[in-house]
């Protein structure tokens, strides 16, 4: 046994919902309820790999139209201009404030890409039982959980501008299908990161210097 014992080695389990510590053998996995909050006790989140992969792939499929299709149409005096996520960032950079353009770029492009790469890396390395940079990988997971929902930024921007810019023929903003796909991407990646179990990072062989 290592210096830092894990729950399974001591015949213990921590409730994933309320944190209550209970005694449990592996045979009881998924059959007992937490005595404190009533949630089912699992050693690991059920079917973490399958669910996380499925949601991540679905999110990526949504992400393609979200970037290719325009998210917003601006019509002004008969002049129609369709914006994609990227062209919106460029417009903000050129005409408005570059600082805000950086924030939108991070929220709409960097964060979703980071989520795909990070969760993909975590899934593959955990499946292989890799002992490489376990602490950093756990931190990466926490980062993904923390920043994940900020990607909704662009969706809310389109929604607000649509509600505000209603000057008929003079100026009008309409949402286009890209924004729906983008919203779905964000929701699906959030579900994917919730389905992943960071405890899987620490399963598999212990590192000698761990």
């Amino acid at each position: 046994m290592s210096a830092w014992p894990r729950a399974a080695e001591l015949g213990l389990i921590g409730c994933h919902v309320c944190g209550q510590v209970c005694g449990m053998t592996d045979a009881d996995d998924g059959t007992l309820a937490c005595p404190r909050c009533g949630s089912t006790l699992h050693r690991r989140k059920p079917a973490a790999y399958a669910r996380c992969w499925a949601l991540l792939i679905a999110a990526f499929l949504m992400y393609i139209p979200a970037n290719i299709l325009p998210i917003m149409r601006t019509a002004s005096l008969g002049d129609i201009d369709d914006n994609t996520i990227l062209s919106g960032v460029v417009e903000l950079w050129v005409k408005g404030s570059p600082g805000l353009a950086v924030i939108v770029f991070c929220a709409s492009i960097v964060v979703p890409m980071l989520k795909f790469l990070a969760l993909g890396t975590l899934l593959i390395s955990s499946r292989r039982g890799s002992s490489w940079a376990r602490r950093q990988r756990t931190q990466l997971y926490r980062l993904v959980e923390l920043i994940g929902y900020w990607s909704m930024l662009d969706v809310f921007v389109v929604a607000l501008l649509t509600a505000l810019v209603r000057f008929g023929y003079f100026s009008l903003v309409e949402p286009l299908p890209g924004v729906v796909f983008f919203g779905l991407t964000v929701v699906l990646t959030m579900f994917a990161s919730m389905c992943f179990d960071p405890r899987l990072i620490w399963d598999g062989k212990e590192d000698s210097d761990d």
Binding site: A3, R6, A7, L12, G14, C22, R199, W202
Partner: peptide
Amino acid sequence: SPPDATTDATAAQSLLICEHCDTVH
């Protein structure tokens, strides 16, 4: 300090399990 392996159920209240790596504290 890590607890020893002979922990019984009544002592469970004095333990915490990390929700990210399952280490018992």
